[in-house]
Design a protein around this nucleic acid. Structure first.
Lengths: 331, 331
DNA sequence: TTGTACGCGTTATCAT
DNA sequence: ATGATAACGCGTACAA
């Protein structure tokens, strides 16, 4: 591994001049620069990142803090974050939170800071994570990917409330009046936003609200909920907070002899890859997870470089109507 | 940020002694050690990782090189890798290959090596990636997660061939004699292994083989393939190389008026979370992706530390029989 | 425009 | 058992 001094020797300059070339220092004679560049090529020299991090006190690493499991949405976003970060010249160090206790969060953030990450992308959809983060003096720029319903600056995401309204309005337009919400866990920001969109839509339409069912995002829970809900007769449609629960829900209804959409309509959220292919094809709200990740990186990088944050247009979720919702009603 | 010298000052020792305490050097008096430890606690001192990496020429970072997209399996494994690595005291730096060209692979590996990763976990299920890797003098220990059919040492995975045999034997036991394989892309090791398992099972049972259909792992392709296959009458069952394609396939059959499993049986591979909940519930081969990731880390860490590799029992895929396969046949 | 000297925080080597 | 000193590779201040 050649060092900057080896390059200097070959180019017959001081190591300092090499450093200047490396960092695009203005005052350097083109021919000197070329000589250095040639030496660099010749030796296949690569700056030592540790040494650089040591002296600059900051590495070209972006930290990704994730508190979601291996779900489709977050996983897609993380992949996109990773790609976008590399494109900007950053490495990516990921850390998954095993639990969302304040201590675990604290440890994780400290760990990342200790690695001298230049910035942090947080995919921590739980409220408590968000609050802990706000209460921490992190010391590096960070961008939060979780969705919140229109609050302070660090956050950035697709408008979950609007997405949920789309879903529920779709059901209302189909003629449904009694719509149940299969919600996500209480602590999750997305769960709250989607529920609020649900409630807003019902209020706007002067329709009655029914107490929501709290789920855990899993298809297994959806299945369970479907079997339970099938005993009730006070609704004709369900808005599930994500596709996995929606798919499990349909399964549960099927087990109980209820047909979707003829007896009950179901709408999901996320538009996971299987959504169009199951039976019945799932009406859902499409989210562009990769774009979400890219935007987070764009904002973060701007913050790190002290530049103006790019103005990003709204990232609106879109309704994808499929066969799982119709005007059919149970008698 | 206190440095090792600050600690030394507080503990009234030399910074060298502090370093010894940090690295569990044997010859150090317990009382001195305690004094240093107290100082460390008092100052909340954390060793600077960049400085350490600079001098030791190796960081406590494991690199993860992934050439798969955001699919369920790899994503689950990566999450597990990350967790296991943290538990062993390593950070994780991930890099996603945008393409599987030798240049891209080379660049990615170099980048990781430049970050002075202590070791590498490679999730690169394509043959070409594997070959490029073998031809590279990487310079750090690495473990390959992709599956190969019983070849050299670096590889490690669940036995895909055996898994595929399970699937096909299941169909044979149900009475099927004409079984089509919806395969994965040609370059993928898993695709080859699963196809080989398929062929082996047919040969063992003295059954005819039918030219396989090459897919791309996506549900959309499965859907397309289903519609195409529905025109043919030379088979009564399909073994799809993964669940997504299987689900799309069932959709395609449905579009064409074919019922699964009454007209055609379908078996998938992976056991993704929705597999039990779709209609018909998908018979598939279960893989323990997280365990795969954990094992990769265990092996890699042993290599890095120069220890004996732990003896890991076989990680056998398991058949999960559900309703998508039955003895039913098309007339 | 270019070079010298120093410091970043740690570990390794050789004393004591 | 402990300390002094020298690396490690790079960036910055200052000098030339």
């Amino acid at each position: 591994m050649p060092s900057i001094r080896d390059v200097a020797r070959v180019a017959a300059v001081s190591h300092q001049t090499v450093s200047r070339v490396l960092n695009d220092h203005p005052s350097i004679r083109p021919e000197t620069k070329q000589r250095v560049l040639d030496a660099i090529t010749q030796l296949d020299y690569r700056p030592n990142l540790a040494a650089r991090a040591l002296v600059t006190r900051s590495s070209n690493v972006l930290g990704v803090l994730s508190a979601s499991v291996g779900e489709f949405g977050p996983a897609s976003s993380i992949a996109a974050i990773e790609e976008a970060a590399r494109a900007e010249g950053y490495s990516v160090s990921t850390i998954n939170l095993p639990a969302t206790t304040p201590e675990a969060i604290d440890t994780a953030v400290r760990q990342l800071v200790r690695e001298q990450v230049a910035g942090l992308v947080v995919l921590a959809p739980q409220l408590r994570v968000f609050h802990v983060l706000q209460g921490m003096a992190i010391g590096v720029p960070y961008v939060s990917l979780q969705t919140a319903s229109g609050a302070s600056g660090e956050r950035h995401a697709a408008d979950q409330v609007a997405g949920a309204r789309l879903a529920v309005n779709h059901l209302i337009e189909l003629g449904h009046r009694d719509i149940v919400h299969l919600a996500g866990p209480q602590d999750w920001i997305e769960a709250e936003s989607r529920m609020r969109g649900y409630l807003d839509a019902l209020l706007d339409a002067d329709l009655p609200t029914i107490p929501p069912v709290r789920g855990d995002w899993t298809a297994d829970f959806g299945h369970f909920a479907g079997r339970e809900l099938a005993r009730r007769v006070d609704f004709t449609a369900v808005f599930a907070a994500n596709d996995l629960m929606a798919i499990g829900l349909i399964h549960g209804f099927r087990d109980a002899g209820l047909d979707v959409p003829n007896d009950v309509s179901v709408v999901g959220f996320d538009d996971i890859p299987v959504a169009p292919h199951i039976w019945p094809p799932l009406t859902t709200v499409h989210q562009d997870f990769p774009e979400l990740g890219r935007r987070a990186v764009a904002l973060l990088v701007a913050d790190i470089r002290g530049e103006e944050r790019p103005a990003l247009g709204p990232l609106e979720p879109q309704l994808v109507a499929r066969a799982s919702s119709s005007h059919g009603r149970r008698s």
